[in-house]
Design a protein around this nucleic acid. Structure first.
Lengths: 193, 193
DNA sequence: CCCATAATTCAACGTCTGTAGAACATGCGG
DNA sequence: CCGCATGTTCTACAGACGTTGAATTATGGG
């Protein structure tokens, strides 16, 4: 089919492979996103993936690297009025999730974590690094317990809205979500336990 | 290896296969729980699975049938004092999830749903049939919206505690969960929106 | 006791999987 | 303009996958 050797020009094939991989991991999970299918969509030979990423797991770990810095996403929360921090946090996270890149990353973690222990640990760590760390900075006592509660609520929102796509949850606008769920987060952050 | 034909005695092989399938789907997801591996653990020839369940998808759909009636689990919630319904609901659902059978069913749905559209729809329907229906009976206005909110919180609790196993969430006792998350549910059920 | 039926295994199929090694082409520094 | 490093494809392997059809053995009803 294609001529064999090196291509003229220098468009970044490696990045293209990585994008396709992210797409397919997010859409089909680890096993169904086969090297051949990824290579096919990226119009590339499967062996090239091994060449760049070493193995399929190598490709996965690189695909699962955070596309945004959680500290940046949650920056605004620290500057908000103390009794609307919950609302601000929901607004910031939903805002991020609504962008294709972040949503895809979330779905990629979830779908691959379902069958791959390594991915599950990445997801655990990611949640810790974003929510736990952020909450710890906003709060002055019982940080672990408070962030645990916040994580249950926020993870559940993402899970039902973007993965399960429950119609009743999908139907809500970001503003409605901030208004309804914000107070829950607020309570988890500041109320006595 | 084994002799060929029908076995003497009448122990229910079909049920044994189904149990192993549930176990493996919950532990490894759809693709890694191969017919051969399920058959192996059930000490049976792979072809026997096809004979009983038609195909792998047939096995999956049978494995995903609800092991408990959600109406029974949530029965007590209806009889509780109106201002402690939230707490009662959390207590009832966590109580169920802590049993091996229900926990396994939850993980089975989740892990197979990650790569199998059919399973995702089953999970969606299951959540609807348990939470949505129950909430609709407890509440007198905005049932859809209220149950949407309840589902985000409860799904998130199950997800972080039993699937992700976030240490901070695992550390909490069922009683602590009821005390901390109960009020959230209560608010979703009765507060003005 | 015979025969239909159900339970079970065997052997094989075609396809897909991840990976490895060799071949080939291009670009770049000397 | 030569040579080396890099990019890219080809071919192949060894194994796993789901499914099928036939063979074998036990059970239960007449």
């Amino acid at each position: 089919m294609k001529p064999r050797g090196r291509r003229p020009g220098d468009e970044d094939t490696r990045a293209r492979i990585l994008n396709v991989a992210r797409e397919q991991f997010a859409h089909s999970g680890y096993e169904r996103a086969s090297m051949r299918s990824i290579a096919g969509q990226a119009q590339v030979d499967p062996a090239l993936i091994t060449h760049y990423f070493g193995s399929k797991v190598g490709l996965l770990t690189e695909a699962l690297r955070l596309p945004v810095d959680p500290a940046v996403v949650l920056e605004s929360v620290g500057h908000s009025e103390p009794d609307h921090m919950g609302e601000a946090l929901v607004r910031a996270m939903v805002g991020a999730w609504e962008t294709p890149v972040v949503r895809q990353h979330f779905l990629g973690m979830l779908r691959t974590a379902a069958s791959h222990e390594v991915a599950r640990e990445v997801m655990q760590q990611t949640l810790h690094d974003s929510v736990q760390v952020a909450v710890a900075r906003l709060v002055d006592d019982d940080a672990d317990r408070r962030s645990a509660l916040v994580m249950t609520q926020m993870a559940g929102l993402a899970f039902t809205r973007y993965f399960l796509q429950l119609p009743e949850v999908v139907a809500l606008t970001p503003e409605e979500l901030a208004a309804s769920i914000g107070p829950t987060i607020q309570r988890y952050l500041v109320d006595p336990l």
